[in-house]
Amino acid sequence: MKERNIGIDILKFLAALLITNSHMELLYGKYSALATGGAIGDVLFFFCSGFTLFLGKMGRFDNWYKRRINRIYPTVFAWAILSAFFFNQHQSMDYTIIHGGGWFVTCIMIYYVVLYFIQRFLLHHLKWVFGIVAFICITWYFIMDRPENYNMYGHTYFKWGHYFLFMLLGAMMGISQKQWKSNFKTDLIKLIGSIFVYYAILFAGRKYPLFSELQIISLIPLLFIVYYFYKVCSSDTLKKWYTNRYIGWGIKLIGGLCLEIYLVQGTLFTDKMNHIFPINVLIMFFIIFVVAYLLRCVARIFSQTFKDGEYDWKAVFKLI
């Protein structure tokens, strides 16, 4: 495995943890401020998707997009089936196709269409594409009507625009011939500094109207967060962790369940164990990971059912 792909594997692991933690306000009770990191987890996932997307041959659009559907939608359909049987959540077929994976899946399926044509016709002009998308996002931000206490990382279509920047950033770094060498301590300090600036802007926006109006500038430290996260994850220090038999196995397992974790988490949260905080958080993490793995197994069964050939049960239950 190439060294830079080791960094991507670790980033997927971190994305899975951050995406899970971001929706756990119910578990933290009076410590709900600890449930942060959702936006960072989202952009890390988009970055990883963009990074790997252009590395292989894409071919004809219909066949390429079919592979993307085959990667994502068996899991979406499997979760719709499990949710109906075990959680009494009954969704129509049109809802499942369009919204069954949440905004995240719908968004990334649209991104795939745009990125295909960018790769086909503008592969050598990604910096220009990044600049144009950034300009569109800035213009969109300042001309749209924003309600009081507006959160650009909340439930809003605007984030469907600015999150695309992180997929483009991943694509640019993925196809770059530059060696992204890392100085672990230096890059870690820069990462921590970027995270501090990012949250300082968001927290200031809650108290001061000016910062609330200009919260779009938080995209700048967020881009640096992703960049330095990748450099830290690609460092020799974390590479040693990755090559450890047990730590590396855990990273690859949880990172590979990122999509499944995103789908199952919202349904599983409960505050019935809050009296044993913080142990309840660890228990909930474990439950989410187990259910995510079971979902992946069911998705593989679902996928194999509609293909020629016999069931490959070893592949169904394969951990990583």
Results as ranks from 00 to 15, higher is better:
126 L>H: 04
137 C>G: 08
139 T>R: 08
123 L>E: 13
126 L>C: 05
120 R>Y: 12
133 V>C: 05
145 D>V: 10
130 F>W: 00
141 Y>P: 07
136 I>E: 06
133 V>A: 00
144 M>I: 03
138 I>F: 01
146 R>S: 07
146 R>G: 00
136 I>Y: 08
142 F>T: 05
121 F>A: 10
125 H>Q: 15
128 W>R: 12
140 W>C: 06
142 F>M: 00
136 I>Q: 06
143 I>A: 06
118 I>D: 02
128 W>S: 14
140 W>K: 07
119 Q>I: 09
144 M>N: 08
144 M>A: 07
137 C>I: 06
139 T>M: 12
145 D>R: 10
145 D>G: 06
120 R>K: 14
124 H>Y: 13
141 Y>T: 00
126 L>N: 02
138 I>S: 00
122 L>P: 14
125 H>W: 14
141 Y>C: 03
135 F>H: 04
116 Y>C: 09
122 L>K: 11
121 F>S: 09
137 C>N: 08
123 L>D: 15
121 F>H: 07
119 Q>S: 11
132 I>T: 08
121 F>L: 12
135 F>A: 10
116 Y>L: 10
123 L>W: 15
117 F>A: 03
128 W>G: 11
139 T>N: 10
117 F>P: 02
129 V>E: 08
130 F>L: 06
133 V>Q: 03
119 Q>D: 13
145 D>L: 11
119 Q>C: 14
121 F>Y: 12
118 I>M: 04
128 W>E: 09
116 Y>N: 09
121 F>R: 10
139 T>C: 15
142 F>I: 01
119 Q>G: 07
142 F>W: 10
118 I>C: 06
138 I>N: 01
118 I>N: 02
137 C>K: 07
116 Y>G: 11
129 V>W: 07
132 I>S: 03
138 I>E: 03
134 A>Y: 02
134 A>N: 07
129 V>L: 01
138 I>Y: 03
118 I>E: 06
123 L>H: 15
135 F>V: 14
122 L>W: 10
136 I>C: 12
121 F>M: 03
123 L>Y: 15
123 L>A: 07
116 Y>E: 11
132 I>P: 03
123 L>I: 12
128 W>I: 15
141 Y>A: 05
144 M>P: 09
142 F>K: 05
146 R>H: 04
130 F>K: 00
120 R>S: 05
144 M>W: 01
117 F>G: 04
132 I>V: 09
123 L>S: 15
140 W>Q: 12
143 I>C: 07
121 F>P: 02
141 Y>K: 00
133 V>M: 02
140 W>Y: 13
132 I>Q: 01
140 W>P: 01
136 I>D: 03
118 I>K: 02
129 V>A: 01
131 G>L: 14
126 L>G: 03
134 A>M: 13
130 F>P: 03
126 L>A: 02
126 L>V: 02
